Computed example of a mutant assay.
Amino acid sequence: MNSARTDVVVIGAGQAGLSAAYHLQRRGLDYVVLDAESGPGGAWRHRWKSLRMETVNGISDLPGIAKPAVNPREPSSEFLTRYFGGYEEELGLAVQRPVKVTSVSREDDDPDGRLVVSTSRGDWTARAVINATGTWTRPFWPLYPGQSTFRGRQLHVADYVSADEFTGRHVTVVGGGISAVGLLDEISRVTTTSWFTRREPVWREEEFDAKAGHDAVALVEERVRRGLPPQSGVSVTGLIWTPTLRSAAARGVLDRKPMFTSIEPHGVRLADGGFLPADVLLWATGFRPEIEHLAPLHLRGPGGGILMDGTQVAQEPRVHLVGYGPSSSTIGANLAGRAAVSAILKLPGIDPTAAPAIWG
């Protein structure tokens, strides 16, 4: 197998990875971006076609090149794949794909030494690693009694394609976030639905203000600072009443039920002891960070998360997580990419004038 040396390996070419690559290139560092996808766009490549630009949360411009004019009716998967691809090409970013990173480990016991990034296309060694793998490939499936006995279909939003496949089947949606209510609205136009959440959703009349956004980020920052797994800030920001969702509420679609207690072959057992038949269980229950390839570094603490100092792993300053925790928003990912590169420039052995890496 081939191997190569470089200053920095960026893992992932979504918003966070491209932001990091932009700042690495500007600062003259030798780097490579390894992306497991077959083309540009990151996780947006896999979003369902009905998720259009008019309904996605605000997407920040990548650094250096603003988004082109947006057609609000265009599927987000198409628009953002085109934007990201054009961005890579115009800036000549060093993106290689498809390359699957299988592990990141230490070359030796020297804390100022190099890291080994093992991939489907050989090994790289680097002074630092910027992990920007996001969450899309790790959907979270909660476990409930009787789940394996269900005879209908179970799927996560990561597997969702179109509401049309559920016509004539009762769909139970589980989850209290934006994806849950958006898909409830969509699916309820072709069939019957029910909605379950663990907590009563908090609704807001208008877009959340700067304070609410800051509070949400602070909540996640506090968790990662304590070495706990990051969680969504939606409980702070709440769900926004859009005209579409008001229409769904008027149709009775957003009639939230307390979480069921168990799953049976043909439906779910309700909290009050009743039974609700169901043909499909759609889990809109979020995602977890894709960081299993970092396991050889033993970064997780007793709380199950990774103790962070900004974008830097507290116990391993050669590793930065961008698009993780408080930087999981698009604007947060941009800021994190710049912060990570600034910190990496202070590491021993980093030389902004180094020649480009060459395969050996």
Rank of each mutant, 00 (worst) to 15 (best):
P40L: 03
P40R: 01
P40I: 00
P40S: 05
P40H: 05
P40E: 03
G41M: 01
G41S: 02
G42P: 00
G42T: 03
G42W: 00
G42S: 00
G42H: 02
A43L: 09
A43I: 00
A43E: 04
A43V: 00
W44E: 01
W44N: 01
R45A: 01
R45Q: 08
R45V: 03
H46Q: 03
H46W: 09
R47N: 02
R47Q: 04
W48K: 04
W48L: 06
W48Y: 15
K49F: 08
K49W: 06
K49Q: 09
K49N: 07
S50R: 14
S50H: 15
S50D: 10
L51V: 13
L51P: 12
L51I: 08
R52T: 12
R52V: 07
R52Q: 12
M53C: 11
M53L: 13
E54H: 12
E54C: 14
E54R: 14
E54I: 08
T55L: 15
T55W: 13
V56H: 06
V56N: 06
V56P: 11
N57D: 15
N57G: 14
N57M: 15
G58P: 11
G58E: 15
I59Q: 12
I59G: 10
S60Q: 11
S60L: 11
S60M: 12
S60N: 13
D61H: 14
D61C: 14
L62M: 07
L62E: 02
L62F: 06
P63S: 07
P63A: 07
P63F: 05
P63I: 05
G64R: 02
G64F: 08
I65S: 09
I65P: 00
I65E: 10
I65T: 08
I65V: 13
A66E: 14
A66Y: 12
A66K: 15
K67E: 10
K67I: 09
K67V: 10
P68R: 03
P68Q: 04
P68Y: 03
P68G: 11
A69Y: 08
A69W: 11
A69Q: 13
A69F: 12
A69P: 10
A69V: 12
A69D: 14
V70Q: 05
V70M: 05
V70W: 04
V70L: 07
V70P: 10
V70E: 05
